[in-house]
């Protein structure tokens, strides 16, 4: 399994240093949650890792090779990206949309058997098989998010990068999506997911990469990274960490008393 790593990524956008010497090694089989306040550089980091942005300095390494040395199609087979927002510009049916995920694997003519298997598996993993024939506009927000996730899974990437996949989902669908991501990582792939909710990170992540002002503030297991002090330092809010009677850790934040 190839390792994905950022080495000293630095990127200026509009005169602002969005990423400032960010280095991180991501572990296959793990879910890594990328956390940080708005504007910390989370999405930009993901875009750099996926090859959508070229850093001014530093490089992305995939399987010991610099990313720029890997062809577009090869890279697309190894790294799947679930972008923020989830545009679907034409009202196509669910099965056709999931099939788009096979684009990097496309044969010259028609579909291969492997395409069919991957699509069916991705649709089963996200539980969208039963509305395969429905048009995208006939889906609820939660169903739609699952279909878009199935599209990425159908590409069978070794790395799945998801940018805020939980936005606009109700709690049940949020947990469903997190479980999907986690199961995918358990299959051996690496998952890197940008999250906003600290509790989601605790639920799902094996590692947390905490960004602040374009720099890595901490990287490690959630319990080590998300300490009350660090949450104060990065987010500027007070944090209380507690455990439910059945052993689930959770974080409650509150505004800091003004001194």
């Amino acid at each position: 399994m190839s390792v994905l790593a950022a080495e000293d990524l630095t990127l200026q956008l509009g005169g602002r240093r969005v990423l400032d010497a960010v280095s991180a090694r991501f572990t296959p089989g793990h879910v890594t949650a990328v956390l940080g306040p708005n504007g910390a550089g989370k999405s930009t980091l993901l875009a750099c890792l996926a090859g959508l942005r070229t850093p001014d300095d530093g490089r992305v390494m995939l399987g010991g090779q610099p990313r720029d040395a890997i062809g577009l199609r090869d890279l697309a087979r190894q790294i799947g990206l679930l972008p923020q927002g989830g545009d679907v510009h034409w009202d196509i049916d669910v099965a056709s949309l999931v099939k788009l995920g096979r684009y990097p694997h496309r044969a010259r003519w028609g579909e291969t058997e492997a395409d069919g298997i991957a699509v069916a598996r991705a649709m089963a993993a996200t539980d969208v098989t039963r509305f395969a024939a429905r048009p995208m506009t006939a889906l609820s927000g939660g169903e739609r998010a699952r279909v878009l996730l199935a599209r990425v899974l159908a590409g069978e990437p070794q790395w799945l990068l998801a940018d805020e996949p939980l936005a606009n989902l109700d709690p049940a669908h949020q947990l469903d999506t997190l479980t999907c991501l986690r199961d995918f990582a358990r299959g051996g792939a690496g998952v890197i997911v940008v999250l906003h909710d600290l509790n989601h990170a605790i639920r799902v992540a094996d590692e947390v990469l905490l960004l602040c002002d374009g720099r890595v503030a901490a990287h490690g297991p959630p319990a080590d990274v998300l300490t009350p002090q660090r949450i104060v330092d990065t987010y500027g809010v007070a944090a209380h960490i507690a455990t439910t009677p059945d052993g689930l850790r959770f974080i409650v934040t509150s505004q800091m008393a003004r001194s």
């Binding site: 875009a47 996926a50 090859g51 959508l52 577009l72 199609r73 890279l75 697309a76 087979r77 790294i79 799947g80 990206l81 679930l82 972008p83 927002g85 545009d87 679907v88 510009h89 034409w90 196509i92 949309l97 788009l100 995920g101 684009y103 990097p104 878009l148 599209r151 590409g155």
Partner: peptide
Amino acid sequence: TLGESAARSMGV
């Protein structure tokens, strides 16, 4: 159909 970012990430 999936937008420019997604298309580029798929190797377009």
